[in-house]
Design a protein around this nucleic acid. Structure first.
Lengths: 198, 198
DNA sequence: CCGAATCTAGTGACTGATCACTTACTTCTG
DNA sequence: CAGAAGTAAGTGATCAGTCACTAGATTCGG
């Protein structure tokens, strides 16, 4: 495998591991094991653990950007916004991307982390602003709602959806999705039950 | 000093230290040093580092709650909302509270952290809902905007306010505040200049 | 009212484990 | 065979948590 291909697979492994413990709480050994390489080779590829973390941050924001741009297609304005909002749930479903991003925000006390996080978030903002052409206030509302969903996903509120305040917090779209998932799960269980019984 | 008083001062020290590195990235030694006690005594008071972290999380949410309740006074509805939104900037100004809370969200991969964070956030939501009596959609918008401000504060966007997208992202109120701070700082610098010159 | 027993606050010195990063090596491939 | 891919075996530092202890206050039986 070429070094570039390796770097790519290490980066993917890193996002998964960093999502659990952040920069300080994740060992290079764990990342190397997941990427199926030796731990010293990880250092040859990325220099330091922090370099790898910074690359992981950039990657999670790039993923978010890619999802949003793809969802918008050649739509603009409110239509593009709706499509993006819909698609953003795909991003939220991958808790590794989301939690790694959370660790990035939390680690902004570090100068390097803050620099990369600012730049990455800025790219995202500018892209959404450019595609939708919305006013600042609308953009603030859009990103604000996105951030609330980030937190909800980080806290895994879907798992405690029976609490009344959680129902309010998640909003109609996610409630519908949860009901849908629930129905699927019930169907699967029933199916399995039939199989077992048969 | 009584053990309870000590616990209180350790908790305050812990929030400051945890805000830099989170659960994994902060040493009990650093916390103990800041609290001016020996490191073993910290363990007598809180059992484990994680227990202390959980207590710190709860405390940061309680602080936020206290600020909002105090700001609302006996107002309700939109008026209470406005007052709370205004006051929330006090919370944002203390980066130790904010970043510790960020570390809590990011660390929600851990079951204990998630439990405490969910509960604390839920208390906050219920309080705001109770005081304002707003509809779910309005609450979502309110908390959403709050979360965006959280991120902005975590990334310290005020420090890079000259970037155009940052101006858009922070909104009118914070821009005005920034201009005000700027004026103050300039006045202070001028004053100091005069003193030096004299 | 004295002193023995008990309790509370607090510490210095240690330990076993973990971890980022290095050195010096091997193996594969064009 | 040159250089790129890849590794085994460390090293020094850090750190959560423990142990065994001291100083002073409080209580209580005689």
């Amino acid at each position: 495998m070429s070094a570039d291909e390796r770097r790519e697979s290490v980066l993917r492994a890193a996002i998964v591991e960093f999502s659990k413990g952040g920069l300080a709480g994740t060992s290079t050994e764990d990342i190397a094991r997941r990427a199926d390489i030796s731990q010293p080779y990880l250092f040859r590829l990325f220099g330091t653990k922090k370099e790898l973390f910074l690359a992981a941050i950039e990657r999670t924001f790039d993923q978010a950007l890619t999802i949003l741009v793809a969802a918008a297609g050649d739509r603009t304005g409110e239509e593009a916004k709706m499509a993006m909002a819909d698609a953003y749930r795909m991003f939220l479903n991958d808790r590794t991307l989301l939690l790694t991003q959370m660790h990035a925000y939390a680690a902004c006390g570090d100068d390097d982390v803050r620099r990369v996080t600012q730049t990455s978030f800025g790219k995202l903002w500018l892209a959404v602003a450019g595609i939708t052409g919305l006013e600042d206030d609308d953009l603030i509302a859009f990103f604000g709602h996105g951030m609330l969903l980030n937190m909800a996903a980080a806290m895994d509120l879907m798992a405690v959806i029976d609490l009344p305040w959680v129902k309010a917090c998640l909003g109609q779209e996610l409630l519908a999705e949860a009901a849908h998932d629930e129905a699927n799960a019930t169907a699967k269980t029933a199916e399995a039950g039939v199989k077992t019984a048969g």
